[in-house]
Each structure stands twice: as C-alpha cells, then as structure tokens.
Design a protein around this nucleic acid. Structure first.
Lengths: 183, 183, 183, 183
DNA sequence: TTTT
DNA sequence: TTTT
C-alpha cells in the first residue's frame, strides 16, 4: 500500500461484545469490533477516583474478520493496529453523518483462551488469494489460531472496505458492495 | 494519566488550513487542526494511479494549542501523537451526531520554517502551571519553538478538553466550558 | 522532555525472568527487564514451522522500576513503550562495548494477576516529587496497582538514567551514579 | 509474518550520512542507515540548554534498500518504522559483541526533494517477486519515488536479513550470506 | 457494550 | 530467559 504520510492507530482494550460478522455477496467477511479503552484519574477537587471509557469502532476485512469472529468474544482483550478512516453515510432521517473507524491491519489476542494457555497469536491483514477462506483456510485456522499467526500481503488498494461513501447504515454496505471489493 | 489499555494515534500529514484557535472564558487556548494523510495505489483493473485522502480532525489544548497557532500554517507537515476521542453533539437540526477527534499530546513540525534551520521542534502536552501562558510563555516560545521543544506533565485528568458532550457545534464548546477545564 | 525527532519503541511480550531491581545510593530504583517477542513462520523450503525470539533489554527508573519489581514476574505479559538508548561500557577485558536498551516510559501489565482479575493497570514514568516512594507510595501502590495506573510528569532531563557512559558492567552503574540522577 | 507479541520501533530523525548500500552475491541490496534523534532540555542546576543525540543503526533490505540508496542522503529527514533485532558478531580481536539494529519495514522521506514538491513518498518492505530489481524496477522507482510510494507483501520469513549470527564485522555479512536470504 |  |  502506498502512502503519503502516516495514519496509524494502536489500541489495547477489551471488546464490549462479540464481533459482528457479515458477509458480502462476494462472500467477503467483514467484522465490526467495539473496543473499550479507559482512563482513570483522581478528581482534582474531590480527590475521588473517576474513569472515562472510550469506545472505538473497529472494522476488519476478509481473513482478519473471520479470525476475529472465530476467536474473539465479549470481554476479550486485544491489541489492534490500524488506520483511521471516516465514512459518510445517511440515516433513515436523511441526515448525513460521519463515522470514524479504525480499519484493522494487525490483531493480537492478549488473553488466554480456553485450552490456549496464556498467550495469543497475532494476525495481519493480507492480500486475499481469492476465495480461499471456504474450507481449507478455516481448518488451518482452527488448529493454528491460538498458537500461531498469519501474514498476508496488504491490498494493492488501500481501501480494504467497500468504497461507497453513502448508504443508510454504517454497518450495512450497499448492495453492489462486493463489486468494489478489491480482488 | 492513568489508563487501562492503550489508545494511541500517530499521524504524519499536512494541514489543510491554518489551525483555528479559540480561547475559553478561562483563557484556555484550543486549536483545531485538520490534517490530511493520503494513500495512493494503482487500480487493479485499469492500472490507473488513484489516491484517497483521509482528513483527520485533531485538537490541541493550552500550550500545544498556542504553539500550533503560532507555528503551523496551511500546508505545514506535522507529526502528531494523541488519543482518539469521540464526542456527541447536537446539530441545529436537533439531530445527535458524533465526532471523533485526535486529542494531541505530542506535536512536531516536520518542515523547515524560515529561519528555523533544518529541523522542527517537538512539543508535548503539559500540566499547566496555572495561567503562565499570558506573556512570558509566549515570549519563550517565540524564540525557542522552531529549534527546540518543550515538555509538560500530562493532565491529572485525562480529558484535556471540555467535558460537556452536548452542544450545537463540535467546534464551539458550551459557554460554561471553562468551568470544566481541569485546572 | 524536549525532542527533535521521534524515538519510540512499542513492545508486547513476556518477561524472561523476574525484573532485577537495584537501588542507587540515592535510593533511586532501577529495574532491568528482559522481554521476549517472537515471530513464527513456515520455512519456505521445508514448510516446517520455525520461530525466532528476540530478547529486548529494557530499563525502568524510579516509580516504574518499583512497580515492575512489585508486580511483574517471570512470564508476565507486558506492554512497554519507551525510547531506544545505546550506552557504551567497558568490560573486564578492557574492551569497549555498546548496549542498546529500551528506556521504559509506559508500562502495562497484560495478564491477570492472582486476585487481580483479568486486566492490568498502566504506569507511566513521572517526575519524582522527591523521595515519596518510601512508604505511603508503596502502600498506595499495593492496593492500587493491579486495578489502576499512575501518571507522572516526564523528567526535565531526557536521560532518565545514569549519565556516565563508561563502566565495567552495563547492569552496575558507577558509584557516583546517583549524583547524576536528574532530581 | 506471524508474531507473538509486538516489536515495533518508530523513528523520525536525520541521516548522519548517505546510506551505505551493499549487494549480496545473490544481488540482494542491503542498506545501512544511521539515524539521529535528539532530545534537548535545560540543566536543572545551571539552567543551560543541553542536548543529547541518539544514533540509531538501521538496516533495510531489497527494494527498501535500493530506494534508500537512491533517494536518501546525509541530512535527509526520514520516518522509519521497523523492529528491533540484536545480532551477535565477533570482532577482529575475537571478542563477541552484540549489535542492536532497527530492521526497517516502512520508510518515508520527510523533506522535499528537488523536483519532488512538498511531500515525500512512503515505502514498505515487500515480498520480493524474484530479482525484479534489475531494471524495470529502478525505472519505475525513478519516476514514482518522490511523489508516490509502494507496497509489498512482507516476507514469509520474519528475518529479512542474513541469519548467521557470527562474523567479524556487523556491517559485512559472511560470504555465504545470500544462501540464507529468504527467497 | 468491555475491563479493573 | 519468556510465551504458544
């Protein structure tokens, strides 16, 4: 991926819910993750402990999305690296809105999984080889995920997501969505 | 600042416009920066070069805001480090919206400034010592900024910005804004 | 801390051993952490899984050092943020050597501690207020560490460690060490 | 590239000299970059301004190495992202030494080049397609480098450098060096 | 909506 | 010397 400048986000936090996985007509997996980070401090006046939680809307595509759907759950602690992207969309009320998301290109599970011991594997977004997720890939992931991680080439096209910028729900891409998937 | 998890953004890009500086009743400086990063790639089908620019809404407070106002301009190339923060606000139309910003805690100018030699200074957000920005601070900055940089203690309170989450313009905080400024 | 340029390291890995804590004459705590990160891949030729572990020599000062000594152990998974620093030293054999370390300025425990649940607190290096670590600080940390985190002002002086660049063991600073501690 | 943990370095600094480029028997380019970052502060006692420069030994392979050789010069300001790696080597005196390097996987030029307009291109380490650097690659780079950037798949094998850990000069890999180059 |  |  070519770039002018740096657009990098690094998060470590917990998932507020199990990732939501969708598939495009093209069978491309898309995962939405809601990740919480929080800060605590003592109120200057009262000295009372306070906390502020920030919720980060994150999205993963293709293999990373499938891995997220398979291995992450509500409460999972994760490391996420990605880039910021703001999408424009139109609500039912016809009002234009903007949503800023973290497009994930690296994901690591930081808590032990049942039977997985204490560590977690790392996963990076990759160049899809073309529909190889169907079966063999899934099997491979099943045994490898908790212990290992994968590497893929980044997309030739920077936008690893649908390109349309206007629809009615930031979570549901347009129907012709998959025509724009870059592979 | 205490934290649970990591919430970190790193940007290198160019300003789309001179920073907008405002002051609260409390005389706290707030700077809004619009920073562009872009990615280029070749269209898989046509082979044509394409580019996508991402605009990042960033905000700096206090001294960093003043420095930004003094030394940055349209087109300035900067390094910015900060954290993601999403604010809720209500438009004139009464519709609730969310705006995600990068709250800057480290800022470096990356292009040479007239008279500034080859490097750019770095600036980190600091603990305000209490109203010392009025005069001496400004003077100090004037000579030092292009060559040197500063360091301040982070705020005891994580939110380095107005705490209200509801108003009519994401750029104009409520009137009682400064009552919530953490110092 | 002022800076020209960016010098940042981010690690997530496991400790190979309990941190080694030393104190200077000045009673300044210094902790040495050995953190492992590893990468795995499949051999291109044989297809066999391979792994390469990288050991990172890290050092924390003052409060961070004490926290590390108190809460980290062999095998602990941590997030570390810091800066690279290379020191010159002279071995018993009179040969000059260089050691590159990560000087930690942010530390988070990523695995649950006994009785501490699943999360870990974050700790950032701070401006020492002057010997406040003796007792109250310790007590405060004891109850707070697994759940909360701390924030301190960075040092006015960038080098948060002994300044001498020549001694016989990278782990044992010179005797006049503490004279150079920046507070 | 698979990974367990995170091993990430981010530098912004200036080159102390033009990159040194070498080629293995296999015609693989290797570039050594010496990058300076510095910090400035005021002496607590005397109030005098002080500065400490840190020199970072960085290494790039293949295409990134060639790009570095072509476009970077003494004084160039760059953004570098990579990972830490420590190599063991043996000096003429037979003494074992360790050298820690930043293995670059992303590189951006931050200063304008003659004829290059205002920005600098970004370059990421890639999967070698197999000897395509000879000619066409060079040509492609010549027109594109100052304005655009490239993207390549990471290596299947994490070590993007010679694997031998013992020789007499950290800058000159063993003769059978290229046998270990991972492609 | 998470985590401590 | 860790972790899976």
């Amino acid at each position: 991926m070519a770039s002018r400048g740096i657009n990098k986000v690094i998060l470590i936090g917990n998932l507020g819910a199990k990732p939501e996985i969708r598939y495009t007509q093209n069978n491309t997996a898309i995962a939405n993750l809601s990740i919480a980070t929080s800060e605590t401090w003592k109120d200057k006046q009262t000295g009372e402990p306070r906390e502020q939680t920030e919720w980060h809307r994150c999205v993963a595509y293709r293999r990373l999305a499938e891995i997220a759907g398979e291995y992450l759950d509500k409460g999972s602690k994760v490391y996420v690296e990605g880039r910021l992207q703001t999408r424009k969309w139109q609500g039912q009320d016809g009002v234009e809105r903007y949503t800023t998301e973290v497009v994930i290109n690296d994901l690591q599970m930081l808590d032990g999984r049942p039977g997985g011991g204490q560590g977690g594997g790392g996963f990076q977004s990759q160049q899809s080889g073309g529909g190889q997720y169907g079966q063999g890939g899934g099997q491979q992931r099943q045994q490898a995920a908790p212990q290992q991680s994968y590497n893929q080439a980044p997309q030739q096209r920077p936008a690893q997501q649908p390109q349309q910028q206007q629809n009615n729900d930031p979570f549901i891409p347009d129907q012709d969505f998959d025509d724009d998937i870059p592979f």
